[in-house]
């Protein structure tokens, strides 16, 4: 059995290592060994699910080992991770997830998105919790819950309309005391669908010629608002997400294929485009919204 070691801390900054291991999987049993895991964010959890699904698609039998105890176990339970993992990983223990209390840091447990009804369900469900976290914790104005819901709707629709396959969304509040000195809200969205390059290829690849690839496709969608639909009204979702996240001085990045593109705020300096990453089928969207500090 092949073993993929999951690092003690897994978030949007190091998920590429897991993707690389998953992409290299052969049709054999593979164990994703997360027993040393101590900290994970929504992107880390969704990446584990994606990695398992990629391995399964390659004919492997993916298994997952989680830590036996510790804070991270309770957190994984609250986020509904064991239930989601049980649908992908062979013989994965399905522990009973606890419903988050009103004061929980969990905004949205891992939720499968496959249809537009799922998007409605997510938007309906987050209203009260989003209001509490955005206003009380992040100190955003009351109208922010509407703008946040719109963002959530648009990122989830991206899965339904462009991935041609199911995906997940999850959101959680964190106190980034050391990293930023502020509270943040992290939203992860991931699918193992066709990815941006394939989604846009039929409509746009020809005019980009030899330049067409993962980076060009991400730039076309992220910077130019192009979609696979020949309709002027399409392509607004990502553009509007970028605008709103920028107003809140947040971070938004999209990882697809071998590239990542991002709008990075001053508190998170990073290159706008990174290429040559391990191949990841589908797309992963990461949004980080920081606590508002006046002045």
């Amino acid at each position: 059995m092949r073993v993929v070691e999951i690092p003690p801390s897994l978030d949007y900054r190091n998920v590429d290592d897991v993707f690389a291991e998953a992409a290299a999987t052969a049709p054999e049993p593979v164990l994703f060994d997360a027993r040393r895991l101590r900290w994970i964010d929504p992107n880390g959890m969704l990446s584990l699910l994606c990695a398992g699904q990629v391995a399964a698609a390659k004919g492997a039998v993916p298994r997952l080992s989680l830590p036996a105890g510790g804070d991270v176990v309770g957190y994984l339970d609250r986020m509904g991770f064991p239930g989601a993992a049980a649908r992908i990983f062979h013989a994965s223990p399905r522990r009973g997830g606890r419903a988050p209390s009103r004061e929980s840091d969990v905004l949205l447990e891992i939720t499968s998105i496959a249809t537009n009804s799922d998007v409605h369900e997510v938007v309906d469900r987050v209203q009260s919790r989003a209001g509490a976290i955005l206003s009380r914790t992040l100190h955003y104005p009351p109208a922010a819950v509407v703008q946040f819901s719109v963002i959530l709707s648009e990122v989830c629709q991206n899965i339904v309309e462009h991935a041609d396959g199911p995906g997940w969304v999850a959101a959680q509040r964190y106190n980034w005391t050391r990293r930023l000195g502020r509270q943040v809200l992290v939203i992860g969205v991931a699918d193992v669908g066709r990815g941006f390059r394939d989604s846009l290829a039929e409509e746009h690849a020809e005019r980009f010629g030899d330049r067409w690839g993962d980076v060009t496709a991400l730039e076309a969608a992220f910077l130019m608002g192009l979609t696979r639909f020949p309709d002027t009204g399409r392509g607004q979702g990502i553009q509007q997400i970028r605008k709103q996240v920028a107003r809140w001085q947040g971070l938004v990045s999209i990882r697809s294929g071998t590239a990542r593109i991002a709008d990075s705020p001053s508190w998170h300096p990073s290159p706008p485009v990174v290429e040559g990453l391990p191949r990841f089928p589908g797309a992963q969207i990461n949004i980080v919204l920081p606590e508002r500090i006046d002045g």
Partner: peptide
């Protein structure tokens, strides 16, 4: 048209 509890007008098909 849709079973939205909160009168939320979201998604293109809706």
């Amino acid at each position: 048209t849709v079973a939205s509890r909160g009168h939320n007008l979201v998604t293109r098909p809706t």
